[in-house]
Amino acid sequence: MNIFRLAGDMTHLFSVLVLLLKIYATKSCSGISLKTQELYALVFLTRYLDLFTDFISVYNSVMKVVFISSSVAIVWCMRYHPLTRRTYDKDLDTFRHYILVGVSIILALLFHDRFTFREVFWAFSIYLEAVAILPQLVLLQRSGNVDNLTGQYVFFLGAYRAFYILNWIYRYFTENHYSRWISWLAGFVQTALYADFFYYYFVSWKNNAKLQLPA
């Protein structure tokens, strides 16, 4: 474990906590894309298949349980909870996210480390996570004004993978491992997708103005 990876995991955890706070505090999930939440639940369920087979550390297992349970809980909340489900912007959240799933399956079947059940599912989860934020970014552009907690949620979600890239660079130079090119490539694409959001987030923070994404 190095400081970059710990910072990445804590930032990721913080983004989940901010999202839970937003839904709990405002009793609303307006501005949140259910499709992105469903994609993230799928990412965690397919990446953490080893939860019960490979024990790496208490930290690793606890964080996996936290990410899986929080993402599933948020999807359940947005789909079935009588109060919050009514606040979901169903007509704005229209991204055809099953296309992202389909493309990720094809990519994982074509490009993977080893053709094993575990590695193909792992590659699928990496590709899917790289694009999972798209429905959320599209929803933010459509819904115009972005409430603070939602903006912070997206910001921390984007920042975590940037820390992971620093972690891979660090491990490249300090350990005799190198990270899979799949992680590098998908990690860069994932972080790049946030680039314009980061720009508008910084501008709104600098001008102390409401976060506005151009339509």
């Binding site: 990876r5 995991d9 990721h12 080893d50 490979d54 790496i56 690793n60 964080m63 996996k64 990410f67 480390d113 792992w122 992971y164 972690n167 891979w168 491990r171 005799n176 491992h177 190198y178 990270s179 899979r180 992680s183």
Partner: peptide
């Protein structure tokens, strides 16, 4: 060092 990073990350 040809071995790839183990799946020890989240």
């Amino acid at each position: 060092w040809n071995h790839v990073l183990p799946h020890d990350e989240l």
